[in-house]
Design a protein around this nucleic acid. Structure first.
Lengths: 117, 117
DNA sequence: CGTGTGTATCGTCAATCGACGATTGACGAT
DNA sequence: ATCGTCAATCGTCGATTGACGATACACACG
């Protein structure tokens, strides 16, 4: 059997749609830095892939992603760290197996900032 | 007097709205690489600022941007090169007065790729 | 033809990135 | 208590980035 027996529902607070990512300024030096930081987090094909996988709920754990990609576990962990640092994903630190999922608010904010260009 | 006497209408074909950036695939390994490349081009506050200035038509020439930012001319030129390589901006190569402007199609494509996440 | 203006390119240098293996730490299960 | 699994961290290495000054280039104008 696979050592990763498909995770149960151990993701983020489920249907949380904060929608607060549209409140802040969209044109300012701070917005420039914010957009640049978000773009930087997505500035790698592997990270785009990871975000897509998490958005589709195709994976929740680091090991799942390692299975899908031709990369070492430490490399995947580092990409997850970058995405988490940018706020694009969040981790369930409480659960046994650390479930990752996307942060809808950050993604919404990203889209809003880009749309404003 | 300013050595940059405000440029005349030396921008791109003006009201060109190709809108062809929505035709290609939005979920694929190629799309991942494409989105990552576009994000990488915007992954710097200065480049975000430059794109914003060009989108607002506040500047068209490299020298205008140099006037606005605390950066050397060669640095600004390099940022412009990165943006042009990513296809986000285009240049009127006709003269020393190179007129830069945003590439609406690339920006639209960028937005479409991000929205698909 | 020389001069000034506006850009691009080159070379350099410090800093950051991306990848890896190895190690460590946390749990659950045996 | 030991083992196996999952993930984070550390240290390293080569490649890339970002910044700069200096230089070279293209053209308009005198």
């Amino acid at each position: 059997m696979s050592p990763h027996p498909i995770p149960d529902e151990l993701c983020c607070p489920a249907g949380s749609e904060p929608l607060d990512g549209v409140a802040a300024t969209v044109e300012s030096p701070e917005a420039d830095a914010e957009l640049a930081a978000l773009a930087k987090a997505l500035a790698h094909p592997v990270r785009v892939r990871i975000v897509r996988m998490l958005a589709r709920r195709e994976a929740r754990m680091c090991s799942h992603i390692v299975d899908e990609l031709p990369l070492a576990q430490s490399t995947v962990s580092e990409h997850l760290r970058v995405l988490k640092a940018a706020g694009l994903i969040v981790a369930n630190e409480s659960s046994p197996r650390v479930g990752y999922c996307i942060a809808p608010a950050a993604l919404t904010r990203f889209k809003a900032l880009l749309q404003a260009l």
